[in-house]
Nucleic acid binder design. Structure first.
Length: 499
RNA sequence: GCCCCCAUAGUCUAGCGGCCUAGGACGCCACCCUUUCAAGGUGGAGACCGCGGGUUCGAAUCCCGCUGGGGGUACCA
């Protein structure tokens, strides 16, 4: 698709959180930049003062950063085409609009919002396609001057050719063409002096030397306008590749906030790994072959091919993403890595000291030892605290004596098992998991219990719950003192219960 | 309404004229492993490749129509 280094851009509009659909577009752009040794440019399209949510910019930058998509030019890092906020480039757009006006490709339009609404209303009543009626397109120089002199404000519209057709090549779909007579004289510059997306994006993409425009599907209908603008300016248009939109899980419309977690940062908070999110997003509409689906970021850079992105819209699946996340935690990341990523969540839960963030500390070692036991059953990092809390607390959470008694057994059975364990484990080497297991199995046999009947009460006694990591490794990590003390408590509980 | 895009199982997809009695994954169902829960292993159900016409010795793959879905139709992006 390209011969040299690509200059691509991701241009979010700061109107809220960056959501996964946008993140996917950003990812594809970033990958293309990296695989061609090009540049990934981040540009903030803050051209709509009404929808602007100032604080959202930080969140968007944080989201992109969290995903690991570093940008070469843009906010904070700047670059040769600064500023990268369109609100700081207003004079440029004004200048270029006037260039179009002078060349006869744009014109001021004095129509009020009311008149436009009225025109649309009438068109609808007559069942005609809605759109601007080009009322001001042929105003004479004198008429225009008179209106400005009278203090009227104007927007500037592009003077779309009335006949002929406009076509462009889309990397995923091939040639796409539109008949000009169906195209509109869209607004380029608004009355508040801000440009519309069309103006800002064409001017900036050209000035910033963007080579490939990879953006969402929804932009296809306005692409011919952009192509006409490039022509009017006498500029070479970039290569286009429109990414299919991400649909709601039920397929009924674009994915939006209403459909659950769609903000990138929500995934961070919910204990997802950026690697898993990236991997899932890459697979949404793209596949390398008929088998592979786990890709490191470097493999994506090596194997991804924009031209193979499936042009049909894809539904978003929370289930598959969840599976992907679990797969990464269970099978892709190394233990130390998972442990380190769990630390913030454990700290938040008040279980470990913040110094555990330093992987050379004993605190971290303890975290690693416990995470090792639950790594293969974690779906989200957020589950870590609830799975390992009993290793860090002095006592287990309170539990009902009943839970010490496995189904279909009597309290006496559980009590006998616990007492046997209490004695039998007293002088066992707790660092030796196999010895622990051998001893417990031996004790079970001695008192005529099945392994499960013996193990469950102990599990509950030491962890306070019926679901826990493997028993013997749990005992090993807990250590003799804690284990014996907790068994004592369990025995008391059971005796009190039966009395 | 008009314009544009898309079309392989519930979902994401492989396939780019014969290798397809359509492959993989998620989800689902069994069974195995097993000290709980996961993970893992094995097997299974699930697609007349949206429908109808062509082209061809041969079509999921090429062409046309239809239907369906999605997008756009703003002084929003």
């Amino acid at each position: 698709m390209t011969t040299g280094p690509a200059r691509v851009r991701f241009a979010p509009s700061p109107t809220g959180d960056l959501h996964v659909g946008g993140a996917r577009t950003a990812l594809f752009n970033w990958i293309v930049a990296r695989q061609t040794g090009g540049k990934f440019i981040l540009r903030i399209e803050d051209t709509d003062q009404n929808r602007l949510v100032g604080e959202s910019i930080d969140g968007i930058l944080e989201s992109i950063r969290w995903l690991g998509l570093d940008w070469d030019e843009g906010p904070l890092v700047e670059g040769p085409h600064a500023p990268y906020f369109q609100s700081q480039r207003l004079d440029l757009y004004t200048r270029y609009v006037h260039q179009l006006v002078d060349a006869g490709h744009a014109y001021p339009c004095f129509c009020s919002a009311e008149r436009l609404a009225e025109v649309r209303e009438q068109q609808r009543a007559r069942k005609e396609p809605p759109g601007y009626d080009r009322h001001c397109r042929n105003l004479s120089k004198e008429e225009v001057q008179a209106k400005f002199d009278a203090g009227e404000t104007a927007v500037y519209r592009f003077k779309m050719p009335l006949d002929g057709e406009t076509s462009f090549y889309d990397l995923l779909r091939g040639e796409i063409s539109y008949e000009n007579r169906n195209l509109q004289d869209l607004v380029l510059l608004k009355t508040d002096g801000y440009p519309t997306y069309h103006m800002a994006n064409v001017v900036d993409d050209h000035l910033m030397e963007i080579s490939h425009i990879m953006r969402a599907d929804e932009w296809i209908p306005t692409a011919p306008l952009h192509v006409q603008m490039y022509q009017a300016f006498g500029w070479e248009p970039p290569i286009y590749a429109h990414m299919p939109v991400v649909l709601r899980p039920d397929g009924k419309g674009k994915l939006s906030k209403r459909d659950g977690a769609v903000g990138v940062l929500e995934y961070q908070q919910k204990g997802y790994l950026p690697e898993a999110v990236v991997n899932y997003l890459a697979l949404l509409g793209w596949a390398y072959d008929d088998k592979t689906e786990i890709f490191t970021i470097d493999e994506l850079i090596e194997k991804f091919n924009v031209e193979k992105v499936n042009p049909s819209p894809a539904r978003y699946s929370f289930e598959k993403l969840e599976w992907m996340n679990q797969h990464y935690i269970n099978h892709v990341l190394e233990l130390d890595d998972v442990a380190a990523r769990c630390v913030p969540f454990l700290v938040d839960a008040g279980l470990v000291d913040p110094v555990a963030a330093d992987t050379t500390t004993g605190e971290f070692a303890k975290v690693r030892d416990t995470i090792e036991l639950v790594k293969d059953r974690l779906k989200y990092l957020t589950e870590a605290p609830e799975l390992v809390d009993f290793f860090f607390k002095d006592e287990t959470d309170d539990y009902d004596a009943e839970t010490l008694v496995p189904r279909k057994t009597e309290p006496e059975t559980a009590l006998a098992g616990l007492k046997a364990a209490r004695e039998g484990l007293a002088d066992i080497d707790f660092s030796d998991e196999e010895a622990l297991e051998a001893k417990l199995r031996e004790l079970a046999e001695e008192i005529g219990l099945k392994a499960g009947q013996m193990f469950m009460p102990i599990r509950v006694a030491v962890s306070g719950r019926t679901v826990s990591p493997g028993l013997f490794e749990t005992l090993r990590v807990l250590g003799r003192d804690t284990v014996l003390a907790r068994i004592d408590i369990a025995i008391q509980k059971l005796q009190a219960h039966s009395a």
